[in-house]
Design a protein around this nucleic acid. Structure first.
Lengths: 136, 136
DNA sequence: CCCAGTTTTTGAGTTATTCTAAATTCAGAA
DNA sequence: TTCTGAATTTAGAATAACTCAAAAACTGGG
């Protein structure tokens, strides 16, 4: 099955009409990209799609978010929003040198607290920030 | 010792010239406020200071940040920036009902991971999001 | 093929912040 | 004091990242 069809199916599966623009955006953000910004999505789609407006980029990203197949992550250091197709519970590591954002599976981090006594916790967001160690 | 003098001393201590505007802003963000936005700082200062520009509000907040006596926190849900005078290691709890932000001392949260093997971690930012339990 | 509903587009509007350059104020020297 | 260069403040323009509104284009079911 080709990539095109994979995306069309994924969109339909999520209850989204598979328009040409959505396929182009979806293909990039759901299969190819690694935490892109809206601008980067536009740039990437521009390379393979004749003409798409910024509003459609945002509309589509929001549609994917609402459908539960994409997540917007607001980075606390820069304030930029990037889109994350990893829908498993996970946290983020920000490499301060390269600016790269890496996913960290939730099970790699153990978290203990007693907030549950007082709150119904709906979500925990963690950002680790640092630099890669120079091995010696 | 009066409040005015406390702030003047705190500013000087941090190596910041104590101008009238900085005293007014500092007094609010370092002593009175609880996670205010820049707009809220302006509104509060306007009540006690004849005339201050938004640029000065931002300039001063940045100056305090660089001096290490104030922290900007970018909230991941709204994207708004609030200023935090708590310089101890701590995390944040966001009450989704009221929008309130509460500080959580770092020692109330135990965090275990093996990222140290690969990274020099400079900072860990955690946002808990949820609602207060209705006691029954 | 037709039509109601959905999607896309353009361009203007918004919000929060930053920039620029001029005006003001300040701290230390004389 | 008075001066002077540096620091600070200001207004207002500029920017970035969206969001909105209304018209135009498309789509899928009948």
């Amino acid at each position: 099955m080709d990539v095109q069809q994979t995306i069309i199916d994924a969109l339909k599966q999520a209850g989204i009409n598979a328009t040409a623009q959505r396929i182009a955006v979806g293909r990039y953000v759901l299969l190819e990209a690694d935490h892109p910004t809206a601008d980067e999505v536009k740039a990437a789609v521009d390379k393979v799609f004749p003409k798409i407006s910024m509003a459609t980029i945002y509309n589509t990203l929001h549609t994917l978010e609402k459908a539960g197949i994409l997540r917007a992550v607001k980075l606390p250091h820069t304030g930029r929003v990037v889109y994350d197709r990893n829908m498993e519970p996970h946290y983020h590591m920000i490499d301060e040198e390269s600016g790269t954002l890496t996913d960290l599976e939730a099970q790699r981090v153990k978290l203990q607290h007693e907030l549950d006594k007082e709150y119904d916790i709906h979500e925990v967001e963690i950002f680790f920030r640092g630099v890669r160690k120079t091995d010696q």
